[in-house]
């Protein structure tokens, strides 16, 4: 290629850099703005990107402390942001562990064992995964309403319901793990089985230790999916103290009670860790999202 570089190429490179930087300026404007707003006094103040008089009022409220304004009034935190974050993390952690356990064993069956209806099951799971749960919310609500009459921790307004409901979304994870198992040589397990190990032991002691990287990826993917889940949580959870962050955050921006500055601090506080985790994992995420979609 180097042989045929034309004279205009240098200008094109500069133009590209300029274009990218301009585009980034626009695309990242909202994110920079919200950080700036979280340090501005009051909920309606306007100003430049760098606040002239930075204040920690919104950050104190987001972290759950009372804040005394200069005129002596004490502001209480409007919403329990940290509790919401904790709820989200709790629900996401438990459900990701369950998802990981169940989808790993399933993926093992689909990758290594032979049984009736395997192909049909795999394909139909992927088709059904495309139906958004938001459409069957009435049924999901009725299901947990019924379950709650027999099992307390599975009723409406319980985190148990949300955790169990998230188990419906395992098909993609099964595909991801199965794809990884397919790349591993099965002769190791066969050798173990010839030496007298059961199928379960071959799975537990041979295959699993080899698959730790993909298991970590699936865990993080499941974690992010659950933490950002909105529709089911909005129907299954009712009390302010039970809400997850995804459902609770919108309460800052009601027309009657518009808390823009407080929201900004809460958003940066809770969004930052999730963003970092996501940035770290995104290269696997894309692989997972396209799994089963393209082969050549």
């Amino acid at each position: 290629m180097a042989i045929v570089r034309s004279r205009s190429t240098r200008y094109r490179v500069w133009a590209s850099h300029a274009g990218l930087i301009a585009f980034l300026g626009i695309a990242l404007f909202p994110l920079m703005m919200v950080i700036s707003i979280s340090f501005r006094a009051g909920n309606f103040a306007t100003g430049s990107l760098l606040p002239e008089q930075p204040t920690l009022e919104h950050w104190a409220l987001a972290l759950g402390f009372n804040y005394s304004l200069p005129d002596g009034t004490v502001v209480e935190p409007p919403f329990p942001v940290l509790l919401w974050l904790w709820n989200s993390i709790k629900v996401a952690t438990i459900s990701s562990v369950l998802i990981l356990l169940l989808s790993t064993t399933s993926a093992y069956a689909f990758a290594r064992l032979r049984f009736a209806g395997k192909t049909t099951l795999l394909k139909s799971m992927l088709i059904f995964q495309m139906f958004p749960p938001v459409l069957s919310l009435v049924a999901i609500y009725a299901l947990f309403d019924q379950l709650g009459q027999y099992v307390d921790w599975l009723g409406i307004n319980s985190h148990g319901a949300l955790i169990v409901a998230s188990l419906g979304g395992m098909a993609l994870h099964i595909w991801t793990i199965k794809g990884y198992f397919d790349t591993l040589d099965r002769s190791l397990e066969e050798a173990a089985i010839i030496d007298g190990a059961t199928t379960w032991q071959a799975f537990l002691y041979i295959l699993l230790p080899l698959s730790v990287p993909i298991l970590a990826v699936v865990f993080i993917l499941a974690f992010i999916t659950t933490i950002t889940e909105y529709p089911m949580a909005s129907v299954l959870l009712l009390d302010v103290d039970q809400l997850t962050l995804a459902v609770g955050a919108q309460q800052y921006l009601y027309e009657q009670n518009y808390l823009w500055g407080d929201f900004a601090a809460a958003a940066v506080l809770s969004g930052f860790p999730i963003t970092l985790v996501f940035l770290y994992c995104q290269r696997w995420l894309v692989g997972g999202l396209t799994a089963g979609g393209v082969k050549g």
């Binding site: 933490i227 909105y230 962050l245 995804a246 900004a264 958003a267 969004g271 995104q282």
Partner: peptide, 12 residues
């Protein structure tokens, strides 16, 4: 923009 959780960036 993809890394920030959607429910936060939409509200922003």
């Amino acid at each position: 923009p993809y890394a920030v959780p959607a429910f936060i960036s939409i509200l922003v």
